[in-house]
Design a protein around this nucleic acid. Structure first.
Lengths: 195, 195, 195, 195
DNA sequence: GATGAATGAGTGTTCATTCAT
DNA sequence: CATGAATGAACACTCATTCAT
């Protein structure tokens, strides 16, 4: 008798096992059987739920992206203040959400960046994600800056956010999130001041 | 004695073949035999000159780092103007040198970032490289800013440079270097203005 | 579930293929793929059941040791006469059992002796096996000889058995088992006479 | 200018390096380049003096056999007493000469036994060596025993010698040579008493 | 006489994938 | 739904051998 509704449970199990595996040994050495072992299921099950390894990796990336979007959206929805500045801060902070700055997530993002350069389906996801950050920022800057200035500000802020995140990820345990937020905040002030 | 002085020639050959291979198929699929084929030599020669695959990858990373340092140093040495601002601009521009923004180099850097998270010897190299950028920037900022402000500025600028580079690399052919330099320059102005 | 209970079948298959391979080309040239071919299975299956080549070799050695112990035990259990002499003869004869004097077994034992000098896990097995022969002999000698004489007799008899076996193995097809048993028997008479 | 008379020097160097290599890692892992390194010469030199690896191994085996024969002959020549008993003791003792019971020699003999089963040229050498021990013993026994008894005694004594040596070699550092000689001596007494 | 660069076949091992149960 | 047995290609690496110098 088939257990009903196993699909979402198994998928979550396997995606988390993938993150854990990448955290432990890197994406290159995260084999199907290791992931299956971490998830406590058999090898074959991955084909059942994700077709093949690429399917699992793509699903894992979508999971991270969804978590990022969720982190940003939640912060923006809970805003008392509807000012551009408040929204921009929320976007910045969302990018340094717990779901994005833990070991497994950081290592997996790094691995995906490299991998996506040679995998069209992942590259598309990657570009969508990059564009969403820019687009979110640009929208808000647009409320207080002329178009070209807004675009420029969005490009700069997106780069600073990613750069801070990247250097933090590479630094490992020394990632000082408060400091990163402070730097982004200072930059934001300057961008907004420069009308 | 056999042909003498082949070592530096072969090493260069193989490092360039590695960059080419990573550019074509990514580091995960850049096999020893593919690299050897691209270099026009036999598989076994890699062991002869680099001990093993890791040795070759590490040498390739050192090559990229050396090129980056060289690009920065050359620009600084040729400076007519010895002002902090000029030096900082030279550092920024060095990071977007041709040796760093071509396809093979960008893909290889991305791959190394991911890989270094699980390879202590590469991680060490990575940290040295990250620190050098910060350190170079900090020195120059220090000439015009108080210590804490200089540190902050260096951290911010390092992050912006890396972020611009990263987003450019992920964008692929659409990497607009002029635009990136402009954004970094604007940020630099603001940092220097904020004494 | 897939075919159940394949493990013991496959393990026997592969151990016998190993003995055959060592018989045909020696342990140095008995490659995984040759063994797999002889067993009629794929290369990869060895990892599935024995982890790696060493695991297979160790299992093969255990198989030979088990056969030897079985050959001795069976003879002793079927003894009508419970005298020390009868037991000692049974031990001697067990060491020249068909399972121990055929080509594959002899060549594999020789190879293991050499190999065990550099493989701690096999060396341990080897010592256990050596000690068991001595120990079995000593127990029986002890029933009719004082301690020191029993020990001496056991050492001598163990050496003679191994020496006869060794020279027989090296002689190849000319191994005259009857002659070997006769020599061991004569030696036994002398040891027992020397109270 | 070619150095004259290098051949015997280089050959000795390489044979000793081979024994050392086999002692350290076993014959399976004693590569040409390891042997060359231990000898302090280049890889290519082995082909120069021994044609190929087999040539070197065969020469090494001949070296061990020569040392064994020398050890026996020297003892017999220095005998004051020309009795069969004295000669037999000399033969026994020669087989436990320092040149035969050190680590490198023991490990190499074991490896050769295994290897010779699949290498006709080495097998021939092996049989010559085995036969020489038997033949030497038989000659002396013949002086005091009838033909069949002499043959039997020689077979038994050869087996005991080899068996004691083998069990000693497998025991490693615990090889008690005095004990082995005592056991062989006791056996000798019994064989000579049984006219 | 001696070197060490270069080869390329061969090794053990790993792994994503398939499939009968 | 789920298993784990089985495959076979691919991998990094080793090595005896060759040969120009």
């Amino acid at each position: 008798m088939p257990k009903l509704g196993m699909q979402p449970i198994r998928r979550k199990q396997l995606i988390h096992a993938t993150l854990e595996a990448v955290d432990q040994v890197g994406m290159g050495d995260a084999s199907i059987s290791m992931i299956a072992r971490l998830a406590g299921v058999s090898n074959g099950i991955i084909a059942h739920y994700f077709q093949d390894k690429n399917g699992l990796l793509e699903a894992t990336m979508r999971h991270l992206m969804k978590a990022l979007n969720q982190a940003v959206r939640t912060r923006r929805e809970q805003l008392a203040d509807d000012s551009p500045r408040a929204h921009l801060k929320a976007i910045i902070e969302g990018n340094f959400d717990d779901s994005q700055v833990n070991g497994p997530a950081m290592k997996t993002w790094l691995a995906f960046w490299a991998f996506s350069m040679h995998q069209p389906s992942l590259h598309r996801l990657q570009r969508i994600n990059d564009h969403r950050l820019y687009s979110n920022l640009c929208c808000e800057f647009r409320r207080v800056l002329p178009l070209e200035k807004a675009r420029s500000a969005a490009r700069g802020m997106a780069a600073l956010i990613d750069g801070l995140w990247l250097r933090g990820a590479l630094a490992g345990d020394d990632f000082d999130i408060e400091q990163a937020l402070q730097l982004a905040d200072d930059y934001l002030d300057q961008l907004l001041a420069n009308r």
